[in-house]
């Protein structure tokens, strides 16, 4: 993945633009252009996200104000009544991405996930809640996207293929990167809409929120060296679910 700073004479250009966007000073046309870039360019979106993180503490100064009770019903009407999707269509830009994202999930994965989500509502936590982590894997200059879910209960990582194909003579290999340690291979990702990779106890011990999952492009059969040899096509942080 190349860094935005490497882009020659405009060094710092995107960095400062991201900052101006987050501070909020840009005129309408420049804001709209930036909004489009956030949608379409992962590297720029990440710069914006970093500035949001830097400046977020200032938002403590916003005092909460109870909105009138009419607002929530209006939201529900817009989203949930009328012909299916009518409300969503009003949402504009992010919609297709969101739909494409979730359509990419196999029905089985959604169903399994929905059950987890429902459990706390159905019965109070009787047993120890098992750790579940989720990561959205994507990269710059690559259309490869996967959604990864790890459930400590069954020691495997489930992957839903969202977009991006591998070349016929290449394999996708999944890596875990924890802190400053070198990447550890979790195995090859089988082709298909969903894939499951059973993980070893050593990796299981290290898998935690904050670890990064990454997918590299490797020769068929996987990296010959035990470390990634090809470009990283997608990566993302694990978050608690």
């Amino acid at each position: 993945m190349s860094l935005a700073e490497d882009n020659g004479p405009e060094r710092g250009g995107d960095e400062i633009l991201a900052a101006e966007y987050v501070v909020g000073v840009l005129p309408l046309d420049e804001r709209q252009a930036a909004n489009r870039r956030i949608e379409n360019e992962a590297a720029f979106a990440r710069l914006v996200d970093q500035w949001e993180v830097h400046l977020a503490p200032m938002a403590a100064a916003y005092q909460p104000v109870e909105p009138p009770e009419t607002v929530k019903p209006a939201i529900d009407r817009q989203l949930f009544s009328g012909p299916a999707g009518a409300g969503s269509a009003a949402a504009g830009g992010g919609l297709w991405a969101s739909l494409a994202f979730w359509r990419g999930l196999a029905a089985a994965a959604i169903a399994a996930f929905a059950v987890y989500a429902a459990i706390p509502f159905i019965n109070p936590p009787v047993q120890q809640p098992e750790m579940r982590l989720i990561a959205s894997l994507a990269g710059d200059g690559s259309d490869v996207k996967y959604l990864a879910m790890y459930d400590a209960a069954d020691s495997r990582v489930s992957l839903s293929h969202v977009s991006g194909e591998r070349a016929t003579d290449r394999d996708f290999e999944l890596w875990m990167i924890e802190g400053q340690n070198p990447p550890v291979s979790m195995g090859l990702i089988p082709a298909g809409a969903t894939a499951h990779i059973v993980i070893t106890p050593e990796i299981r011990e290290k898998l935690a929120s904050g670890a990064v999952l990454a997918i590299s492009l490797e020769p068929v059969g996987g990296s010959p060296t035990g470390q990634p040899t090809g470009p990283v096509v997608a990566a993302g942080d694990l978050k608690n679910l």
Binding site: A45, D49, V53, A91
Partner: peptide, 15 residues
């Protein structure tokens, strides 16, 4: 409405 349609984006944010 945006939160409903874009909630999946949260997974790639560091916020």
């Amino acid at each position: 409405v945006k939160v409903w349609t874009k909630a999946d984006r949260f997974a790639v944010s560091e916020l």
